[in-house]
Structures are given as structure tokens and as C-alpha cells.
């Protein structure tokens, strides 16, 4: 809330003041994020349309059930919850950095920016592991009457409906769209995380060089923070659409 109370009935549009009571950069960051929300929304809705048009879809608990160094243990949702908590935690350190910026505490901003960057790198590492696991993990699939070993790529999906073959249940090829959408959307999100980490590193360096201290305010940290929280926000929906339902 503003410390300088804004009177009721202020004429925002009569000139002499910013109609949205915010700087140009911050307002434009919000509109950029809104347009980005539409991009992600379009991807996720397109995924939903294809998924609804299929008679069979992949069971996420069956695909995403592994954890690093846990071998073949069946641990549905475990790894993705770790990733989610990493991103929420890095969002908290980001908002704490913004808070320190309001107090003009340069060392505090530096400390929390470093934690945020670390969180982002951890998340990207987790995603790299998950992609590698999907792209290299071999699964038995019944193709044209004989068994083949398939990994999950944009053109291969070994998680189709199960049929009886030689007295045991084996999977048949599943919808190709699963891999395409999974790698497209998590890849696009991962690229956002990556660019967010780069932006945060730039902000950290500028903080260290006392650019913001000399400028008299830490609004750039706020704008970088908006982007970073948006990345977290998108992950909340990716998590919902790919892993939970």
C-alpha cells in the first residue's frame, strides 16, 4: 500500500500523474507477462484439445515415477514435487530480495539474489535429469507383432494401451502427441527459467556494482522479480496439466 495516501476520487487521467501510479517499465513488464501468459495458455489448451480427442492417454504416474539414484523404485509424483518446491522456494527468496531492495539494503539484495539464482539452476538441473531419463529410458513395446525397446521422444511413445502378448501384458505405441507436447511445453518453460536465471545474474552483478544504490532505488530487482514469479506461476499450471491430471 502506498504510504502517501491516494485520495478517493483522484483524477488519474487528467494529466500530471502516471494513470497507473507505476513506472513505464513496470507497466510494460506486466503487459509482456500477460502476452506470455497467452502464449503458454495457447500451448496448454492445444495440448488439452489433442488429449481430449484421443481415446487413450498416458498415465503420468506411470511415466514420471522415478527419482535420481533410486533405481527402478516406483515413486510417482516424488521428483516433480521436489522441482515444484525448489521453484516455490526460489520465488520466496526473490520476493525477499525485492523486500531488501525497498529497504535499500544492498547486501541483503545480493544474498537473496544468489539464493534465487541457485534455486533456478537447481530447477534446470532437475529438468535436465528428467529429460535425459525420458529420452534414454527404454521400455518394451509391441510393434507390428514383435517386441521393441522404445524411449520417449517427440516421435516415440512407449506408454500406449496394454494388450496380452505371449501370456503377458505389454504396452503398445501410445499417442505421439504426448512426447511432442511434453518436450515443447516443458522446454519452453525451461527456456524461460534459463533466461530468468540469466536476468537474475545480470541483476546480481549490477547490484554488486552499486548501480541501483547510486540510482536511488531497486526497481529493476522488482521487474526481474515479476518475470521470475511469472515463471513460477507457469510451472504451477504445467505441473497441473502434465503431472497431476
Amino acid at each position: 500500500m502506498s504510504t502517501v495516501a491516494v485520495q478517493q476520487g483522484t483524477k488519474w487521467w487528467s494529466g500530471g500523474k502516471s494513470p497507473f501510479n507505476a513506472s513505464y517499465g513496470k507497466v510494460m513488464m506486466w503487459y509482456f507477462l500477460m502476452s506470455d501468459a497467452f502464449t503458454f495458455g495457447a500451448f496448454l489448451i492445444s495440448y488439452g484439445t489433442i488429449r481430449f480427442s484421443q481415446n487413450h492417454w498416458v498415465d503420468p504416474n506411470h511415466v514420471f515415477n522415478s527419482f535420481p539414484f533410486a533405481g527402478h523404485a516406483n515413486l510417482p509424483l516424488a521428483f516433480v514435487s521436489l522441482m515444484t518446491f525448489i521453484l516455490i522456494a526460489s520465488s520466496v527468496t526473490m520476493v525477499l530480495a525485492v523486500h531488501e531492495g525497498h529497504k535499500m539494503n544492498r547486501l541483503g539484495v545480493e544474498k537473496y539474489m544468489l539464493w534465487t539464482i541457485l534455486g533456478g539452476i537447481c530447477f534446470l538441473s532437475c529438468q535436465a535429469w528428467e529429460w535425459t531419463h525420458l529420452l534414454t529410458g527404454q521400455h518394451e513395446v509391441l510393434v507390428n507383432g514383435h517386441l521393441e525397446l522404445w524411449n520417449t521422444t517427440v516421435s516415440h511413445n512407449p506408454f500406449g494401451p496394454e494388450v496380452m502378448f505371449n501370456g503377458k501384458e505389454v504396452a503398445t505405441p501410445g499417442p505421439i502427441a504426448f512426447g511432442s507436447y511434453f518436450f515443447e511445453i516443458t522446454g519452453f518453460h525451461g527456456f524461460h527459467v534459463f533466461s530468468g536465471v540469466v536476468i537474475n545474474i545480470v541483476m546480481y552483478i549490477k547490484t554488486r556494482m552499486k548501480h541501483f544504490e547510486l540510482r536511488g532505488h531497486y526497481e529493476m530487482i522488482e521487474k526481474a522479480g515479476l518475470y521470475w514469479h511469472f515463471v513460477d506461476l507457469v510451472w504451477v499450471f504445467v505441473f497441473l496439466c502434465f503431472y497431476l491430471i
Binding site: 500500500m1 502506498s2 504510504t3 502517501v4 491516494v6 500530471g16 500523474k17 502516471s18 501510479n21 507505476a22 513506472s23 520466496v92 520476493v95 525477499l96 523486500h99 531492495g101 525497498h102 529497504k103 535499500m104 536511488g216 532505488h217 531497486y218 526497481e219
Partner: peptide, 23 residues
């Protein structure tokens, strides 16, 4: 007020709460 954008057109100033309870 030095912690906020210096412009006569902007009267918005971020909250100077000392605690981070809400976060």
C-alpha cells in the same frame, strides 16, 4: 522515500514493513 522511483508523476511508494511475515 528514497527507495522508490523518483518521479513527480508517481505517488506510489512500496510498503516499508520491517517484517517479512506476509511473505
Amino acid at each position: 522515500m528514497s527507495a522508490s522511483v523518483t518521479s513527480s508523476e508517481i505517488s506510489f511508494h512500496p510498503e516499508h514493513a520491517d517484517n517479512t511475515k506476509a511473505i
